[in-house]
């Protein structure tokens, strides 16, 4: 029977509560925006078929809870992520400063999942795992209430290994499509570099069968 493979690209959106993670996802997938704020409980996801270099991919975008009290679903969805999007609000310094915490949290959790569950395709090389940073809400007050400069944000991205950076407005649909195209491209690169599972190897020295644990971090 012929085998069929659908390429799934898994993207996780992280960031403080209220920075616009859900709005960005809804704007990209459904071309919709709502002014009404409703905290995400646990996590949720949307899928979108994307075409890139004459190939079709399914982009599975996971929107997460920014508030700790709403993080009820744990971090199971971190596993197998191909790209992680860090979102902050350009009008909130705290949300920008917390990007470090979100990045570290993701790498720790994803690696723990790998070690515990012996899964092959996650950040086995944390330094090179694809992140994308988005500074959202650039439309507010015509940019006058902005507290995080583009220069400062780009400097942080450069210090973390030249993370791609985008400034967006989910409300006005500014730069959203471009940001997600970059996310899909990075996710695809990451997905293609996934290790293939090899069957149990025999260590002749110990003459015992071993199973690969995947993540080496």
């Amino acid at each position: 029977m012929p085998s069929r493979r659908r390429t799934l690209l898994k993207v996780i959106i992280l960031g403080d509560s209220g920075v616009g993670k859900t709005s960005l996802m809804n704007q990209y997938v459904n071309k919709k925006f709502s002014n009404q704020y409703k905290a995400t409980i646990g996590a949720d996801f949307l899928t979108k078929e994307v075409q890139f270099e004459d190939r079709l991919f399914t982009l599975q975008i996971w929107d997460t809870a920014g508030q700790e009290r709403f993080q009820s679903l744990g971090v199971a969805f971190y596993r197998g992520a191909d790209c992680c999007v860090l979102v902050y609000d350009v009008n909130s310094m705290k949300s920008f400063e917390n990007l470090n915490n979100w990045r570290d949290e993701f790498l720790i959790q994803a690696c723990l999942l790998n070690l515990r569950l012996r899964w092959q395709a996650s950040p086995s090389d944390p330094e090179n795992f694809p992140f994308v940073v988005i500074g959202n809400k650039i439309d507010i007050d015509g940019g006058n209430s902005r507290v995080v400069s583009e220069k400062k944000a780009r400097a942080w991205c450069a210090s973390k290994g030249n993370i791609p950076y985008f400034e967006t407005s989910a409300k006005e649909c500014v730069n959203v499509e471009e940001a997600f195209q970059c996310i899909a491209k990075d996710a695809l690169k990451s997905g293609e570099e996934e290790e293939l599972y090899l069957p149990d190897t025999i260590d002749v020295g110990n003459s015992s069968q071993q199973r690969s644990t995947g993540c080496e971090c």
Binding site: I41, A43, F45, G74, F77, R79
Partner: peptide
Amino acid sequence: DEVNLHLQLHLR
């Protein structure tokens, strides 16, 4: 864990 997560999301 992933299947249970999807089941939870579905039920919710």
